[in-house]
Design a protein around this nucleic acid. Sequence first.
DNA 1: AGCGTCATTTGGATCGATCCAAATTTGCGA
DNA 2: TCGCAAATTTGGATCGATCCAAATGACGCT
Lengths: 347, 347
Amino acid sequence: MPKTPRQNLTLNDVAKGCGVSRATVSLVVRGSPLVHADTRAKVEAEIRRIGYIYNRAAANLRAQSTSSVGLVVNDLSNPFFAEFAAGVDEALAEVGYVTLLGSTGESVERQQAVLASLAEHTPAGIILSPAEGSKGAAVARVVGEYLPVLVFNRELDGDWDYFVMDNRHGAQLATEHLIALGHRRIAFYGGHRASSSCRERREGYLQALGDADIAVEPRWSIETAPTRLEAARQVGALFVRDPAPTAAVCYNDAVALGLQLGLVARGRHPGADFAVVGFDDIPEAALSMPPLTTIATAPRLRGRQAATRILERARDRSIATEHRAIPVQLIVRESSCPPPDSNGTPA
Amino acid sequence: MPKTPRQNLTLNDVAKGCGVSRATVSLVVRGSPLVHADTRAKVEAEIRRIGYIYNRAAANLRAQSTSSVGLVVNDLSNPFFAEFAAGVDEALAEVGYVTLLGSTGESVERQQAVLASLAEHTPAGIILSPAEGSKGAAVARVVGEYLPVLVFNRELDGDWDYFVMDNRHGAQLATEHLIALGHRRIAFYGGHRASSSCRERREGYLQALGDADIAVEPRWSIETAPTRLEAARQVGALFVRDPAPTAAVCYNDAVALGLQLGLVARGRHPGADFAVVGFDDIPEAALSMPPLTTIATAPRLRGRQAATRILERARDRSIATEHRAIPVQLIVRESSCPPPDSNGTPA
DNA sequence: AGCGTCATTTGGATCGATCCAAATTTGCGA
DNA sequence: TCGCAAATTTGGATCGATCCAAATGACGCT
């Protein structure tokens, strides 16, 4: 860590400059009601005059306080995480906290390094979306025993605060919506079987089919990388055998958008002769052709809630950990149409 | 700022626990070659045993060093900024720094608050994409005189390090590409005249037309909000009078994608009877129908470069500020076709 | 004038680390 | 075995703020 030979103005410089003591200036910068209005004005003028900048690190050290929260995500370029991060930062900024950012790129080793690095900055807590394959014990070792951690988006073994989307319920809503439109041949499209969120969503899909007494066709559960490109490439798998599905519940919006592209490339018309439902409601979902029916989770709001929760736990370390299912909501747009009639023409 | 009654293990606790002095433990944690291997092993074992966590804030205070960099953007939900932020964080993490995140939501007041808050954490420097309407003097006041600031993406008056895309050149490349394909009636589509990036891109467009001795038709410069939706709505403006343009250089990818949608809605075929070029190469550009020819700026790489540069300036405060034009690259995909022949049928 | 009360201000110790000059130990050659 | 240089370890002062108990000042009242 290189030296930072910055011009260091301290409380002492301010104090000397206007003939009061260090302690008084400290009271002024903290907005204490103890100081006389005249004194306050004099000190504030001096602060502006010399361009003093408060050193919060020093203050936090002495006062055993904190003004930051760590946020660790896989990859900011995922719009879901970006929105979430924006929400976290927004809520923290409102109460004078700063977000310490860390990204893992899905690497457990990098995650350990990032967590260790963040913990050294004495954050009030850490909000973590664990990289695939993380072990709770390893996380606990590196963040220490007393730092509140909120786990988000993925499961992690151990006793953590835990915010997770209600994946089951969301996929169930999506599937029920398609069933209500008249579909009986519904695929579950995209995602990796290994991912817990994918498993949960598929469970919700199966549940809805079961509730409607629709037989499950295993060939219609199609695994892909959770990206648009891969999803577009695999579209053929839906149509290898007749009868083909007339609708698909997708692992997420990226996959759903890819599926739409792939359908168009095959001369199909999503929203007219094939129904598509996504999951996440990323900003692009409303703008695709056709606009995507999807499950909204309001990631920005979830970020705000996560920030609020971690500060709560930081204030009162005795609060028990809690598992919170994030509510989800079906957003109906134009990609979900009724099934074509038996001749294959759109309804 | 609430108290943080965390279990505070210090160097002293480690020292007592294994019978050496504070100073020796400090040398160990910093990896100094001065300590004997046996001592180091003993100390490291004790550190693990009691779960000691290094307090970097205290270290930075004493050593007058720093291990963070502030990053202030308008909004992380813009994928361009998200990619940029990911690049910054990546590069910083590699050298043991932490990213302090701040977002302004395009509000100058919030920006002042965020900058002030970040500056109090003694970062090595700040990377700033200024909110529209920022004044350099205001920024200077709040970050202090000696903190390196790198301005990114937008101009800001004053003497700053400055990274900006080579907007002129990019738009020029795009326009030349269309000219080379045989187009003579080329529009400049979308963006706000007030935005400096839009002005620069339009200048590049005009330059290329001039170089090719093509007369400029002012009616073919069409202003829109820089969003997909607005761009799609304004498509009609291109075709109010004959002869209509056969191609468009767009302000950015969002606008270009909107234009494509709008063209399709009017029964046209972008990439077949009308050529479209975008700007930014956002991830969706490769996946639209048809895939978009555009100007790539590699935001993640730019983020890495910005991080590198700010650390350089932090190490050596005497380095002069520099204005760096970010190189751009034409990515040819399928949306840029030759012009239809005189009968209006695709070439 | 003397005194108690309340408002305001203050210096010394401290947070957890590093710096530094000096102390101590070790190793080696004579 | 002793001496000296090199290797290793150490305690006290310090970074820039806050805490705290105690000092000072202002004011009203008898």
